[in-house]
Design a protein around this nucleic acid. Sequence first.
DNA 1: TTTAAATATGCAAATTATTTGCATATACGT
DNA 2: ACGTATATGCAAATAATTTGCATATTTAAA
Lengths: 142, 142
Amino acid sequence: MALHTKEQLTAVIKSAGLRLTDHRLAILATLARVKQPVTVYELVDTLRKKENIDQATVYRNLTSLHEAGLLRRLDFNHGHAHYELETGEASHQLVCNSCETVEKIEGISIDSAVQKMLKRSKKFKNATTHSIEIYGVCKHCA
Amino acid sequence: MALHTKEQLTAVIKSAGLRLTDHRLAILATLARVKQPVTVYELVDTLRKKENIDQATVYRNLTSLHEAGLLRRLDFNHGHAHYELETGEASHQLVCNSCETVEKIEGISIDSAVQKMLKRSKKFKNATTHSIEIYGVCKHCA
DNA sequence: TTTAAATATGCAAATTATTTGCATATACGT
DNA sequence: ACGTATATGCAAATAATTTGCATATTTAAA
Ligand SMILES: [Mn+2]
Ligand SMILES: [Mn+2]
Ligand SMILES: [Zn+2]
Ligand SMILES: [Zn+2]
């Protein structure tokens, strides 16, 4: 699931039932390379250096990849979306209230507590993903 | 901290260092009455039935109340903001991927796990709030 | 391989959510 | 009551995202 090689990316796209296009490959490859959730603006900017691609295409592909379950979408209350690869694991991050930087926190599981929440509310059987955001002021802005 | 009476709302606004206006009172009162995080559109719609208020005024007041720490802002990846009273406690909700309904989950604390996350990342000293969203498909949409 | 239908793309224009400029009105300390 | 800072309405501007449409590409079938 490392999603490094072009073959892996290709396989993931196809097994998701999506058509294989250069743009889709490039979008996935970029997200696989980057460590933080990326904004659409950043993604378009990055992709445009390598290929001719329109923002509408990026938006449409992000939506289809997300609907196929390959991407996770996050907001952070920034007024714009951020995307990252969907790993199936929980996504945790620290969000600075001042500069809006986002820092991913790895290696901590809150799954048991989340499972408790899910059981408490019996109505949500098919819960898929969850995300936890902690809002505060980062070291740099403090 | 129930924020029911007009006196309580007034006190909260003034002690936040904000001027007392009818609009601010009405906005806070509405948010105190509603159980779920509310969209700006819903809020404007509700307020317009009682008083003459412009959306710009609502946006400006939501921002000032939020900056004063009285409101919490949530996104849920809906492309628009939602607001609720800031209780100081964590805010947990189930978000349906299909119909976008939001269900608040009360009475469960994940604070210990969140504190662990905060310690793990020493850089975030002044963390204020956190929110956990669980995305899935609600009973009605399943 | 062609071929045809389904899907993807670029480009421009449209929508939605949110913000801002500016003239006037209101809040509140003095 | 007065003066200044802040709030408001209204219209216009921005920012994020979506959509229409003509053309290009993908893919499965022939
Ligand atoms: Mn951002
Ligand atoms: Mn919503
Ligand atoms: Zn910061
Ligand atoms: Zn639903």
